[in-house]
């Protein structure tokens, strides 16, 4: 260990899911892949390349920007622990 100097990058020991009360649920059928949720997500935790908008629930803090900005209103914020639609 030689810290204060020369540490690695991208070391993520703890997830951020604890920040969250609500989590986004995407209606994949209604989604038009405008990618606005993807670019606005502060965490960058929405993945778009699979053709579906997939949220990394380890790092989603549940801010709700994606739901607020979705032009089709196809993202809903669901309380953690409750059944996703």
């Amino acid at each position: 260990m030689f810290f204060g100097a020369s540490n690695g990058v991208g070391i993520l020991p703890t997830p951020n899911s604890g920040f969250r009360t609500f989590h986004p649920v995407v209606d994949q059928d209604a989604c038009i892949h405008c990618n606005l949720c993807w670019i606005y997500c502060p965490e960058g935790c929405i993945e778009k390349e699979t053709g579906k908008m997939v949220v990394d629930m380890d790092y989603c803090k549940g801010c709700g920007i994606c739901a607020n900005e979705c032009p089709r209103k196809c993202i809903s914020m669901v309380k953690d622990g409750e059944q996703d639609e």
């Binding site: 997830p15 951020n16 502060p42 965490e43 960058g44 549940g62």
Partner: peptide, 9 residues
């Protein structure tokens, strides 16, 4: 940049 401990939003 991923996993930062910033506030929500």
């Amino acid at each position: 940049i991923y996993g930062a401990k910033t506030c929500q939003g």
